[in-house]
Simulated assay, not measured.
Amino acid sequence: MLTGTRLHPGGTRRLPATGRGRPPLAAGLALGLALLAGAVALSLSVGTEHIAPGEVWSALFSPSGSKDDAIVRELRLPRTLIGVAVGAALGLAGGVMQTLTRNPLADPGLLGVNAGASAAVVTAIGVLGITSFTGYLWFALAGAAVAATAVNALGGARSATPVRLALAGTAVNAALFGYVNGLQQWDLSTLDSMRHWSVGTLAKRDPDLLVTVLPLLVAGALLTFALARPLGALALGEDHARALGTSIRRTRILSIVAITLLCGAATAVCGPIGFIGLMIPHAVRAFSGPDPRRLLPYCALFAPALLLVSDVVGRIVVSPSEIEVDIVTSFLGGLLFIHLVRQRKVAQL
């Protein structure tokens, strides 16, 4: 139950604190920071060539120009920084998406963000002949925004409900991915160019792209945390949210803006990476509770840790080749769904 106020016949009372019976927020965040630090260390040291932690430290703070220094500074450090930023963005977007729709199985892709970005990128490549990452970056962002806006409009805008948003998102996703597949089959050069982007990966991504989209990621994250309290009220139900003075329409619109900024920018940099936004909020809710004021900080730390560990797994299982991180996270997401199916019941938010 969320901390806040609830109207009663005899007046106004404060709801019990969400954190009661759960680990203190500071302790959970400390654990998240420790796990993220460990994931960063693994990402910098493990790969086709293993580099000892001491050598990684030297490469970062007192480089000597060796081969290991070049691997750490020029290849793994940018890849790791991208993983941290993208992972945090996807985790936050997933937390907002699941709270907004009151559906613990919702994924940021439910609002058509990934499908919109993919459709815009394939159009830029196949129709306009734009093939550079920096060239179609803004197409991905615009496509994500248009798709999310269309889902909100089809879902009923002011009268939108979680179920209607989910149905609208499913319809938009199906239509856009059908368009993407059709254009790829029609133009083989588009298919060849698109395949390097269509599977989400942290490898061979231009770090300058992260610098370009960083303001959008920061803006989306700040907006997400600012929405924590109204989202918590909305999770109690629309009647309770109105009683607490929350503007449902404004909260829903700003939430979609935050999801679009976070997922659009992340997808533009790395391509579509699935299931991070599903798995992390679902996993951390067991000890954070449903209150977004506790849930979202956990998501911001645990999601990049999972993404980096998944990336490391992809590097070593078929070394010296590697598996894209989206394939690893999809496999883990499949295991999560199997677990949920075996439970036969998914708890409501």
Rank of each mutant, 00 (worst) to 15 (best):
T5L: 15
L7Q: 15
G11S: 14
T12K: 06
R13E: 14
L15W: 12
P16W: 04
R20N: 11
G32M: 05
L33V: 11
L33D: 07
L33I: 11
V40F: 01
E49G: 01
E49K: 00
V56T: 00
A59C: 07
L60A: 04
S64N: 04
G65R: 06
D69V: 01
Q98K: 07
R102L: 06
N103F: 08
P108A: 07
G109M: 10
G112C: 04
G116R: 02
S118N: 10
V121R: 02
F133P: 08
W138C: 06
F139S: 05
L141G: 04
A147R: 03
A150Q: 06
N152H: 14
L154R: 03
G155D: 08
G155S: 07
A160I: 05
Q184W: 04
L188W: 06
T190Y: 09
L191T: 00
A203I: 02
R229A: 11
A233V: 06
G245R: 09
R250T: 07
T251M: 11
C270N: 12
C270P: 04
I273Y: 12
F275G: 10
I276M: 09
I276C: 06
L278G: 07
S288I: 01
G289Y: 05
P290Q: 13
D291P: 03
L296E: 13
Y298E: 10
F302H: 05
P304A: 10
V312C: 09
P320N: 05
E322Q: 14
E324S: 07
V325K: 00
D326R: 00
D326H: 00
L332E: 09
G334I: 05
R344Q: 12
L349F: 06
